[in-house]
Write a protein that binds this DNA or RNA. Structure first.
Lengths: 193, 193
DNA sequence: TATGTTTTGTACTGCACGATAAAGAATCTG
DNA sequence: CAGATTCTTTATCGTGCAGTACAAAACATA
């Protein structure tokens, strides 16, 4: 029963997410946020309260869009489990190397920054990590039951190994242009399953 | 032929390195640096020129101390290669979980921050990555020739897989307290060699 | 149209930032 | 000791920061 917003909350969050993604929390200024969202200071603070609160919302937005999409792609379906996991890694290599800003993964970036290692942000990041671990474990269990993957290791352990290599891969992709080096990681990791 | 410094350059670099390590580049203020080094602003700027130049020097210092020590520990010697690699990972898990500030690895942190993905810092980080890759490849080659490790993959590829898992492990250790999950990464990775 | 509520734009606050200037103190050379 | 040179200290610079105050504008309800 009052004046309605002139902007879409999710559109603003998407824009803010992009900036935090590219520059990190500390290096992003409120002016950056105003410019990329098109909002004035007043509107931003009225809607989100503080830079840090907006950061939290941006992380949530990341989880419910990009990360959720990734989990969906990992859900068991027909076809080779090995290929699915390989595709996940190779697709990320392509995306990362293509990206001029070398932003990598927002959740990983958040985990590295001091601002993301405590409080609400840390919990959000932790849950994203757990969700991926779980999805990988389920998929690997399916592959094992199908006789496609080695059963010498429990699915959860294999999932954790894969996840770790995957996160390392994305970190390596931030500073290297050596595509072959990254593909070696993929080959070595997939072969271990 | 003038007044000598009242401080040791390396001691100051060590102190600065600690702060950058804990808070990252952006979140570290010049005042932080003054407080932890015990120097005044004037002295700091006279000796190092700028915050960013000091950051670069701190990264170099990290490479020539911590990272160099790690490479040394990986140099081929008697004993099981598998155990050496396992010890490397387990020791890092213990250190990371013990560390209240959850600083992780300075080079990895630098790679994640925007300030470390370009220019001189990026080159320094890249070289640290390459150095570790090389040391791992040599050690793994030794293990393969000794018949201790599988020869199904070239040493360089195995090294890259291990390195990636190792970096992922250190990233995971930043937000989780689940020691077993981290040890699963170790077991899975070592078993793949 | 009148009223109440929310949003929006602008100006502003106080503060901390990175960096500098200048003067005095300490040391070396001769 | 005299002079040159470098380091240290203190005070300060201008800027940009996160956040706020407030009035005008836009809408919903009646």
């Amino acid at each position: 029963m009052a004046r309605p917003r002139e902007f879409s909350d999710t559109a603003v969050l998407d824009a803010a997410m992009e900036v935090f993604w590219e520059k990190g929390y500390e290096a992003t200024t409120t002016q950056d946020l105003c410019e990329c969202t098109g909002l004035g200071r007043g509107s931003l603070y009225n809607a989100f309260g503080s830079k840090h609160a907006l950061y939290e919302e941006a992380i949530k937005r990341y989880a419910s869009t990009r990360a959720a999409l990734q989990l969906q792609e990992l859900a068991p379906a027909g076809g080779s489990v090995r290929d699915r996991l390989r595709d996940l890694m190779v697709a990320m290599i392509d995306l990362d190397l293509e990206d001029r800003g070398r932003r990598g993964c927002l959740a990983l970036n958040a985990a590295s920054e001091a601002a993301g290692r405590s409080g609400e942000v840390a919990s959000l990041v932790q849950r994203q990590f757990k969700d991926l671990e779980e999805a990988l474990a389920v998929l690997i269990a399916v592959g094992q039951h199908a006789g496609e993957l080695s059963t010498s290791r429990p699915p959860l352990q294999a999932a954790r190994m894969f996840q770790s290599a995957y996160y390392g891969l994305r970190t390596l992709a931030k500073v290297t242009d050596d595509r072959q080096a990254l593909l070696d990681v993929v080959d070595g990791t997939i072969a271990a399953l």
